[in-house]
Design a protein around this nucleic acid. Sequence first.
DNA 1: TTGTTCGTACGAAATTTTTCCTACCTTTGT
DNA 2: ACAAAGGTAGGAAAAATTTCGTACGAACAA
Lengths: 126, 126
Amino acid sequence: MEIEPTKSELEILQVLWHHGPSTVRFVNDKLNEQKRAVQYTSTLKLMQIMAEKQMLTRDESQMKHIYIPLIEEGQTKEFLLEKFVDNMYNGSSSSLVMQLLGNKKTSKEEISELRALLDEFDKNNA
Amino acid sequence: MEIEPTKSELEILQVLWHHGPSTVRFVNDKLNEQKRAVQYTSTLKLMQIMAEKQMLTRDESQMKHIYIPLIEEGQTKEFLLEKFVDNMYNGSSSSLVMQLLGNKKTSKEEISELRALLDEFDKNNA
DNA sequence: TTGTTCGTACGAAATTTTTCCTACCTTTGT
DNA sequence: ACAAAGGTAGGAAAAATTTCGTACGAACAA
């Protein structure tokens, strides 16, 4: 993995990962709903660039091109998370989680969820 | 908190947080040791800009100015982590931790560390 | 004293990322 | 047929970030 999506590229990838292959129009609408105001041609341009970079591919058989992510969600996020942990917490995952637990915005539900995950993990790795 | 350090700014902040108030020379040396080749004047410029932005302040009483972080480590990292979780995992911390657990690079030690953290947390919040 | 080293200031340039204008083509509705 | 709506392509510009050259003063060593 040598591909590091920029902030805006990641926004687009999220839409495609979440909703599957989509037109530019669809992605642009989602961004405007969920994120911020952005012109159609800006999104178009970015997605074209992403296709050049081999981050996406597209089906041009119809006039409305369908864009398809070429990089896999889990793999990409794992890569980005690893970089984040390295940069911010000197590679220590537990430091990150400690920060998470100290964060007021992390809800009780999230925390019991965390505990369940860890139990599950232990069970499978006993 | 409205201050969002850039990638390079964060590198500088990490040095200052870790080593305390420092000269440009010191920070630049650390960056070259730990990160990548970068000219002295580049680091200088960046730290001057950060001072303008009120991210740092400096003691100019000596010729070698001493730069001091104005934003707090924990608070800043919490903010950045929250944004990361929002952007990448739609705000779900447990999704992030799940990714962490699935990551081969997360060691067994890290995981028992995690479990200990969670136990500790529960004890204090029973 | 004099030259070398080390510091800051400043401006400009290079790079990266993001945004949008314009042109032009296709589809659709009247 | 024709206008309106919606599509892509491409270039340029804007914005954000990063890098560095040059000038010049202070400290220091010979």
